[in-house]
Simulated assay, not measured.
Amino acid sequence: MFGKNSRRLLTASRLVALAGLVAGSVAGCSTSSPTEGMTTPAASATGMAPAAQATPVVQAYCPQVVMLEQTAIHRVYAKGGQDNPDKLLYQASLADATRQCSANETTMTINVVVQGRLVDGPGGAPGKVTLPMLVEVVDGDNVIYSQKVAYPVDLPAGGTQFIFQKPDVQIPNGQGGASRFTRVRVGFDQGPVKKPAKRG
């Protein structure tokens, strides 16, 4: 029922479809082109750029999003039923992603948007689940940014799609944008994750 999905760098056509799906969440979603999705802060209403604004980066590199096969699927089983299909409570999987970059002279900010699917298993029931999302930025073999997010999703009977957004991924900005070896890596954290604290 839950087959493996191959993971790859996203094609432009799939990103266009995702951009339409998340239009309400992020404006100006990029394609998979490394230099597209790169914006600079908007000018003020007077038409003058803010005094602290850096000179716009021309043809800067906006890191692409990758999803690894081993972290793109998250399964949760009933207690004592690990890897037993009949005890599966729910499964979450990641499908497509896009990003948008903006930069000043010191910092690049990446807005990451990911589409996923959440389905209930034979041992599950409708309710709220918390997905352990992990967003990393890697430059070659070096992790230069890492953030875990406990992301709540309502699971109805039969499953649902969800949109995860992390608009504040920040990395150092060099001349011409990020290094050409830089990638944004999105997946499910393999370790435990704390649930968000209840308000009130």
Rank of each mutant, 00 (worst) to 15 (best):
F2G: 12
F2W: 07
F2N: 10
G3Y: 06
K4L: 00
S6H: 08
R7V: 12
T11V: 11
A12G: 14
L15R: 14
L18T: 03
L18N: 01
A19Q: 05
V22T: 05
V26S: 01
V26T: 10
A27L: 06
G28M: 03
G28Y: 06
S32V: 09
E36R: 14
T40I: 05
P41I: 01
A42C: 05
A43T: 13
G47A: 06
G47K: 05
M48Q: 14
A52E: 02
A52T: 01
Q53N: 03
A54F: 06
A54E: 00
T55C: 06
V57L: 09
V58D: 11
Q64V: 00
V65M: 10
M67Q: 11
M67W: 13
L68P: 01
L68D: 12
T71P: 09
H74N: 02
H74F: 07
R75C: 09
A78L: 11
A78W: 14
G80S: 11
Q82L: 03
D83K: 15
P85F: 08
D86G: 12
Y90G: 14
T98D: 13
C101F: 11
T106W: 04
T109Q: 10
T109F: 09
T109C: 06
N111A: 03
V113P: 03
V114C: 00
Q115V: 13
V119E: 15
D120K: 10
P126I: 12
V129S: 08
L131Q: 02
L131A: 05
M133N: 02
M133I: 14
L134S: 10
V135S: 01
V135T: 05
E136D: 13
V138E: 05
D139Q: 15
G140M: 13
G140I: 12
D141I: 15
D141L: 15
N142K: 12
V143Y: 10
V143C: 12
Q147N: 09
Q147Y: 02
A150Y: 02
Y151K: 10
D154M: 06
L155Q: 07
P156T: 01
F162G: 12
I163H: 04
P167Q: 11
V169A: 02
V169C: 00
V169M: 07
Q170G: 12
P172G: 14
G174T: 05
G176M: 02
V186K: 05
G187M: 03
G187I: 06
D189M: 03
K195L: 04
P196L: 07
K198I: 01
